[in-house]
């Protein structure tokens, strides 16, 4: 019995790793550009469909497909920021919410029109089903473990980029005070766009993981956005390690909730989020 519960917790932690990869890009855009991209989940689903197309029509392996999409999503994010989001940044909350909201509906319905409403999944081969028996009733799938370790690697790399590199210093400067950054000659629009390009890269990685681990359809975006948002808020705005912790909390809540009754999975995640949020609205590891 104890082993059963332990196993559930382990599965929840691993699911949290996937959620953390969804949330990583959102955490960056919230921390740097101070806005919540309502289309974040839909962009993850959009890239998942791109990966699906690459694997089915070109016969690429999922890993190769993700590698192909990385530059596409980097420039996609760069251009999205440069051509659209930058125009409404700093004009208050309403315009940026409305623009990303409109974008979300466009992406969802564009996918519906192109791919239809069917539920899809990318085939991951034997990798997908391989399991490690750890004893004591605890089984760990190789794929979820890979995703979890990748989530940790993403936090380490992003933390390094933000706090140990010249680019990171520039991004933080623009994020702290865009007027002062402009004054000392930083190209703030280009720096914001580069940051959004990095967000695009995280979107491609999370889309790759999501498309082989879970089913998705064109309307899956909002549920990914909500989970990512919950992880970001629980972790504390701007803290990447906090975002990982937040993802793990939501993951455990969902798996344990599903254990009680399969229909409780999503509701349990939301309720745990709301409860912790009411007790600690600033999040677990707030940075600002």
């Amino acid at each position: 019995m104890l082993g059963g519960w332990l196993n559930q917790i382990v599965q929840g932690v691993l699911l949290g790793g996937l959620y953390a990869t969804f949330a990583m890009g959102l955490s960056l855009s919230v921390g740097i550009m101070r806005f919540v991209n309502i289309a974040h989940g839909d962009l993850i689903v959009l890239v998942s469909f791109l990966i699906l197309t690459l694997t089915t029509t070109l016969g690429l392996s999922p890993l190769a497909a993700v590698l192909v999409t990385l530059p596409i999503t980097f420039f996609g994010g760069y251009l999205l920021q440069r051509l659209l989001l930058q125009r409404v940044l700093g004009k208050g909350v309403l315009p940026i919410i409305l623009v990303t909201f409109g974008l979300s509906i466009i992406v969802q319905n564009g996918l519906l029109g192109t791919y239809g409403a069917d539920t899809r999944k990318v085939a991951g081969g034997s990798f997908e089903t391989a399991t490690l028996m750890l004893g004591g009733g605890v089984n760990v799938g190789v794929l979820p473990l890979t995703i979890f370790l990748s989530a940790i690697a993403m936090v380490v790399v992003l933390d390094f980029v933000l706090y140990r590199t010249r680019l990171g210093a520039r991004i933080r400067a623009v994020s702290d005070d865009v007027a002062a950054a402009d004054l000392i000659g930083l190209p703030s629009a280009r720096i914001y766009a580069t940051a959004m390009g990095i967000v695009g890269v995280t979107i491609a990685i999370s889309a790759g993981f999501m498309s082989i681990w879970t089913n998705f359809d064109p309307t899956s975006g909002p549920s990914r956005l909500l989970v990512a948002f919950e992880a970001v808020v629980l972790g504390g705005l701007g803290s990447l390690w906090g975002t990982l912790a937040g993802g793990i909390i939501i993951g455990i809540a969902q798996v344990v909730g599903a254990q009680v009754d399969a229909a409780w999975q999503l509701l349990a995640g939301h309720l745990v989020f709301l409860a912790i949020f009411m007790l600690r609205p600033e999040g677990l590891f707030p940075k600002y």
């Binding site: 919540v36 309502i38 909350v93 909500l226 948002f229 808020v233 939301h270 709301l274 949020f277």
Partner: peptide, 17 residues
């Protein structure tokens, strides 16, 4: 309790719940 930019998605979470 959420600042303006986060209130949008926060209200969505509550509605979903």
């Amino acid at each position: 309790r959420l600042r303006a930019a986060y209130l949008a998605v926060g209200s969505w979470v509550v509605a979903e719940t």
